[in-house]
């Protein structure tokens, strides 16, 4: 059986908001390591990998490894019924056909339980090979979200180029073109406001902005985002979830034929 208790229930609400538009149905994997998920979008262009480590929960019990198939839209509907300050407890059984979400108000004067039907989902687990990335950019997540939103009003794709000058986000569309360059900037008041560029060699890749915009729904989870790029490899857009783990999005590039 699985039993997990998360005092900061809002984290789980935010996690759902950051994946439900990308993936409809997914298997959550429960193990001693934690509560995790790996799923592709329906076009198999993007992949999301989520890990919430067991140590991050106030209480975590998982007797054996098993998976629970969930419709993420339905799960989001249920979690939206939890208050932002609520403590969330999840209970499920190996082979069970439902999962229970319990929401407790901080003062314990309101306790709700919601039972959601599970589903059988055939999904392939993909092996994600360790890769040496040509460039790793860390920047404020709000800044990255703003750039993706702004560029998507001009074009459908973004070219992300990292050179010694900085990281450049470019697009073009029917009405014109746009280029936004962010330079390394470590002279900021708070470390989370810094832009840090580690470049082994210059890299330039093209991606669909629709997916990038979807990834930025994870911005409330972390003040910073890390973008890892290598030629001819999917980009990794990672948001760390404080004390608990991460949500990583992999997006296949567009490549000239």
């Amino acid at each position: 059986m699985l039993e997990l208790r998360l005092v900061q229930g809002s984290l789980l609400k935010k996690v759902l908001e950051s994946i439900k538009d990308l993936v409809n149905d997914a298997n959550f994997d429960c193990s001693a390591t934690g509560f995790s998920l790996q799923a592709m979008d329906s076009s198999h262009v993007a992949l999301v990998s989520l890990l919430l480590r067991s140590e991050g929960f106030e209480h975590y019990r998982c007797d054996k490894n098993f998976s629970m198939g969930m419709n993420l839209g339905n799960m989001s509907k249920m979690l939206k019924c939890a208050g932002n300050d609520d403590i969330i407890t999840i209970k499920g059984d190996d082979g069970g056909d439902t999962i229970t979400f319990m929401f407790e108000s901080p003062s314990q004067d309101k306790i709700a339980d919601f039972e959601m039907k599970l589903m059988d989902i055939d999904s392939e687990h993909l092996g994600i090979p360790e890769a040496e990335y040509h460039a790793i950019v860390r920047m404020p997540s709000a800044e990255f979200a703003r750039i993706c939103k702004d560029l998507s009003s001009i074009g459908d794709t973004v070219i992300i180029s990292v050179t010694k000058e900085g990281v450049k986000f470019s697009t073009k569309g029917d009405i014109g073109t746009a280029n936004i360059v962010c330079r390394q900037n470590t002279t900021v008041d708070k470390p989370e406001e810094a832009t840090i560029i580690e470049m082994q060699e210059p890299v330039s890749l093209t991606f669909a902005l629709r997916y990038m915009n979807s990834f930025t729904k994870a911005s409330p989870l972390s003040n910073t985002v890390t973008i890892s790029l290598s030629s001819e490899l999917p980009v990794v857009v990672e948001y760390k979830i404080a004390e608990m783990g991460y949500i990583r999005y992999y997006l296949a590039p567009k490549i000239e034929d």
């Binding site: 262009v45 993909l126 090979p129 590039p253 567009k254």
Partner: peptide, 14 residues
């Protein structure tokens, strides 16, 4: 023309 690749072009079932 840039062709959209799929994740499965890069990562294989584990």
């Amino acid at each position: 023309v840039n062709q959209q690749r799929q994740i499965t072009n890069f990562f294989s079932p584990s």
